[in-house]
Design a binder for these strands. Structure first.
Lengths: 190, 190
DNA sequence: CCAGAATCACACGTACACGAATGAAAATGG
DNA sequence: CCATTTTCATTCGTGTACGTGTGATTCTGG
């Protein structure tokens, strides 16, 4: 799904439209390319390694997290996978119905649920992971190994920065401009 | 939504589980951090600059593309926004119902639809974009300007590489292992 | 001990997001 | 010309994805 206009054309169009605005161009370029790259990588992995197992990206990430930690509480699995608990519930349901994952109750705290791979899920990951990692290597194939490591480090600094200061920043903004509630969310039963 | 386990803990767990597999670690780290960063950045922007206008990320990207090109065919808008044509249809519907965008028919080819911002949409973007760019600057705030530019360049190389060689790669894989059709997609009317 | 606060998994409503199917329209090719 | 093929936006089915509401369960201060 390549872009239709060339990078040069887009650059010219942006300049025409944004000439009057003072812009932090390096920030615009970094954020824009970040999402373009993430989408392209996800697309490639879903259509190569994951296609064979008929898994979506998110489903694979959840399997990966559970595999790595062997047994994990759902709230931690959601945090590690980078999705909300509500989203995780749906994915678990899908993976459970396919016999790849199993839920059990925490022995001490009955509010908690624990996740584990089934033997089928374990076998799938042991078969799938090498192929997945091969495709990861392919997507960074245009980079030298040290460049990929620098890239990873740079991205991690962004994540850390947002984890440490993002909430503060958003709160400050809300103080200046009160924000409407986000759309979606369960409606009050009236 | 920070991760629950520390990076060190995760590293140890990964080593325990993957000790037996030969891994391209720099690729794993780059791809993993790429998605973590993209999700964190998107989350921040949706909950800061975009929250004020009650726009989702995808809706904003579509508005941005149409703004930059002034008038654009839907298929090109989808390519530029990095979403499928089917997804674009739904987003257009939302934006049209909010009076931010308008569709019209191509004068020469009646299969094509053209997109334009309404005056309200234009006013929104002129008001919203500076605030959005401020937040983009915030998310790369942990990076020096030259680092952000290097990052953008690196990411662009990944995108270019996938656009140039991704399809070939996926076709080669399919020759080795015939893949099942993706789940989802309209079912044949039988 | 026990009332209120906190936290949990999950249900639910809205909005993407994809690829396959579909039907309309335009290009192609004899 | 007219049938075939191609190209287009859209519809449809499945699966995330979010944040909020809900009820069950546990924690906590008095």
């Amino acid at each position: 799904m390549p872009a239709h206009y060339s990078l040069t054309e887009t650059e010219e169009a942006v300049n025409r439209r944004l000439g009057a605005f003072p812009i932090r161009r390096e920030a615009l370029a970094a954020v824009s390319n970040l999402h373009r790259a993430a989408a392209a990588v996800r697309q490639h992995l879903e259509n190569s390694a994951l296609r064979v197992a008929d898994l979506t990206w998110s489903a694979f990430v959840v399997l990966w997290v559970v595999w790595i930690w062997e047994e994990i509480e759902t709230r931690h699995a959601a945090a590690e996978a980078g999705i909300s608990k509500g989203t995780l519930t749906g994915i678990i349901k899908t993976l459970e119905s396919r016999g790849l994952i199993q839920r059990s109750q925490h022995p001490d705290d009955r509010r908690l649920a624990l996740l584990r791979l089934t033997p089928e899920g374990l076998a799938l990951m042991e078969r799938l992971f090498p192929a997945f990692n091969d495709e990861e290597a392919f997507v960074v194939g245009a980079l030298e190994e040290h460049e990929a490591l620098d890239l990873a480090a740079c991205l991690r600094r962004i994540v850390t920065h947002l984890e440490e200061h993002g909430e503060q920043r958003r709160n400050d903004l809300r103080r200046q401009t009160p924000v409407p509630p986000r759309r979606g969310g369960r409606r009050r039963t009236e």
